[in-house]
């Protein structure tokens, strides 16, 4: 068992980091909304799903197949912009339709949670029953494959571990987006508003922060990150489905909690940690145990650090 683990260590680490980067980007959306509204946005997984379909639509419309070099970078940037717009836009609409009316009437957080679950089902069924069939000409419940747009060339090998182009693109893109978001929250006016609202919404209002704008921006930023994640996901696994967000959403939420919910850098750390744990655990005990291992470690970490590895700190620390 141990020998096997060592043999596969390299490949599992590369795979774990790739999956972890995607978890991390989706986790950002959970973490930001939680930081600002103390609400778990269960429909965030569907925001991600919408991003995958937006990207797939563009790939199919333009007949993109296996671009190389600069063309690939161009395609990637275009897809990311489209998916960011689609997911970000959907997140803003979601906030407008499912959360704002409740918030305005001072409903409890529990009501918003139920509304989130409802919105999640609504969006899934909307894609399954109404949108997919006419747009993609495949039955709505089917898995839909995507042509390749991220290269599979081997860049370098460590031992017999091959690091392929798409691994690097995904991890690097995730880290870049992470830095951009981090800087947005630390350095811009909107970012200051977000941090102020997270710290103390009432005082923030008294200080002249427009809460509605801040909440909308939070959803927009979180949704846009899910859009980036969606493009990277589609590039890596090359298929999507109406319920693709569900399991990934659970994992991303876990990553957010693991890193410290409400903490942006924690989301990144949590994402990578969960991706690696899953793969290492699966190599050691078999894939059937994959989630058991990952979640056992989660429980142990939360026992010693109840607020996650880096703690809850959208408001406090520099992030």
């Amino acid at each position: 068992m141990f020998q096997e683990f060592l043999n596969q260590f390299g490949t599992n680490t590369v795979g774990g980091l790739t999956a972890g980067a995607i978890y991390a980007l989706v986790a950002l959306g959970y973490t930001m909304v939680y930081g600002v509204l103390r609400l778990i946005n269960f429909a965030h997984s569907e925001i991600f799903m919408i991003g995958t379909f937006a990207a797939l639509f563009v790939v199919l419309q333009f007949g993109i197949t296996a671009p190389t070099g600069l063309a690939m970078v161009g395609v990637l940037v275009m897809l990311i912009l489209v998916a960011m717009a689609a997911s970000g836009g959907a997140a803003v609409l979601l906030e407008l339709a499912a959360y704002r009316p409740l918030r305005k009437r001072g409903a409890s957080r529990l009501a918003a949670l139920i509304s989130a679950i409802g919105a999640s089902f609504f969006l899934q069924e909307l894609f399954k029953l109404v949108i997919i069939q006419p747009v993609f000409d495949k039955p709505g419940g089917n898995q839909i494959g995507s042509p390749r747009f991220l290269g599979r060339e081997t860049l370098f090998s460590i031992g017999d571990t091959k690091v392929q182009l798409y691994h690097v693109i995904i991890v690097v893109s995730a880290i870049i987006m992470m830095i951009v978001l981090d800087q947005t929250v630390t350095r811009t006016k909107i970012g200051r508003g977000i941090r102020a609202t997270a710290q103390d919404p009432e005082t923030a209002v008294l200080m002249g922060v427009n809460i509605d704008v801040i909440v909308r921006m939070t959803f927009l930023l979180g949704g846009a990150m899910a859009g980036v994640a969606a493009v990277l996901y589609l590039g890596a696994y090359e298929n999507t489905k109406f319920d693709i967000g569900f399991l990934l959403g659970v994992k991303a939420f876990t990553a957010a909690v693991l890193g410290g919910i409400g903490n942006l850098r924690g989301a990144l750390l949590g994402g990578f940690a969960l991706g690696l744990l899953e793969n290492w655990g699966a190599a050691f005990f078999g894939s059937t145990w994959r989630d058991v291992i990952a979640f056992t470690v989660l429980v142990i970490i939360l026992m010693f650090r109840p607020t996650g590895i880096l703690g809850e700190s959208l408001q406090r620390a520099r992030a």
Partner: peptide
Amino acid sequence: EDKVDAQASDVSSTVAKIKS
């Protein structure tokens, strides 16, 4: 042998196992 969750998107650990 290996058994994989049909819903899981990342199966790189299983692929690594097959490869080795």
